[in-house]
Computed example of a mutant assay.
Amino acid sequence: MSGPKEYIFKVVVLGDGAVGKTSLVLQFTERKFNENYIMSIGANFAIKMINKPEENLAIRLQIWDLAGQKHFQFVRPSFYRGAFACIFVFDLTRRESYEHVKNWVEESEQYAPGVPRILLGNKVDLIEERVVSKTEGEALAQELRASYYETSAKEAKNVDICFDDLNNQLMDIHIWKKPYSK
């Protein structure tokens, strides 16, 4: 009997610096959270294997966490090449990061047009500091034709759920050949 059919999906994670992109990826791939902020230089790369034995599939998510600082803008285009999906992250405690999401979508459309999108409002655990409402996040997601989740990389809240949703969208499009219509 042959092994599972393997698929590789490249996913880019985008958003302003310090919104928690690296922390979300680390939580999803390694079940870790680092309290200390470490700025991404260019891009960070992680892999997560998702086995679906009931469907005889193995999915390899290549997750590219792109640096959000303006001065890394010139290196980002090459990291989009071959992307199957984009995850946009903003910080629920920093309105400007929410307001910049449309800029990230505009940039991504230049290099990875028409791919599935997930919008994440991160740091939901910082209840007292929150400045962006769930309603605002949902409205932006609807406008961008994206799924929306409020996450906490620190508490691992909704991290697996949002990546599972994205993986299922990618499987529908590329394995089961259902048209993308978000």
Rank of each mutant, 00 (worst) to 15 (best):
G20F: 13
Q73D: 15
L26P: 07
Y37F: 14
E30C: 08
K154I: 02
Q69W: 00
E30K: 14
L14I: 11
R95K: 14
E150I: 10
G17M: 05
I87H: 00
I38E: 15
L126C: 08
Y37G: 09
K48Q: 10
R94G: 00
F90C: 12
H71I: 15
K154F: 07
W176E: 09
I161C: 06
P116K: 14
R130M: 01
E109K: 12
D164L: 07
A67P: 01
W104M: 07
C86I: 08
K5N: 11
F90S: 07
L140T: 06
C86K: 05
I8W: 04
V11E: 00
D165E: 14
E99M: 07
F84N: 12
T135P: 00
Y148Q: 06
S2C: 08
D164I: 06
N44D: 15
K182T: 12
T93K: 05
G42P: 09
F9V: 04
A141M: 06
C162H: 01
F72S: 07
L14E: 07
I127A: 09
L14G: 01
R60Y: 07
P77M: 11
A83R: 05
R117H: 12
P113S: 10
F72P: 00
F74D: 12
I173P: 07
K32A: 05
K123N: 05
S23R: 01
N34G: 02
N103I: 01
V75K: 10
L66Y: 13
N158I: 04
S2K: 11
K70H: 11
S152F: 10
Y149A: 08
L170G: 09
N34K: 13
S78N: 15
L126E: 09
E107C: 02
D65K: 06
W64D: 07
A83K: 07
I87C: 03
E150T: 09
F72G: 05
V132H: 03
P4K: 10
A46N: 08
G82F: 13
E128N: 14
I173W: 01
E143C: 02
V159H: 00
V131R: 08
Y80A: 02
E150D: 05
C162E: 03
V101W: 02
E143W: 03
A58F: 03
V105P: 01
E96R: 12
V25W: 11
D172T: 03
K134R: 14
N158M: 04
T135K: 11
G42M: 06
L66D: 13
V101L: 08
I87F: 06
E54A: 13
V105R: 03
V75H: 11
H71F: 15
E107D: 15
D16Y: 01
L140P: 08
K48H: 02
M49A: 04
Q73L: 15
E136Q: 14
H174M: 05
F163K: 08
F9Y: 15
A153W: 01
G42I: 04
V12L: 11
S147P: 00
Y98K: 02
R31L: 09
A43H: 12
V12I: 15
V159W: 00
R95S: 00
Q169A: 14
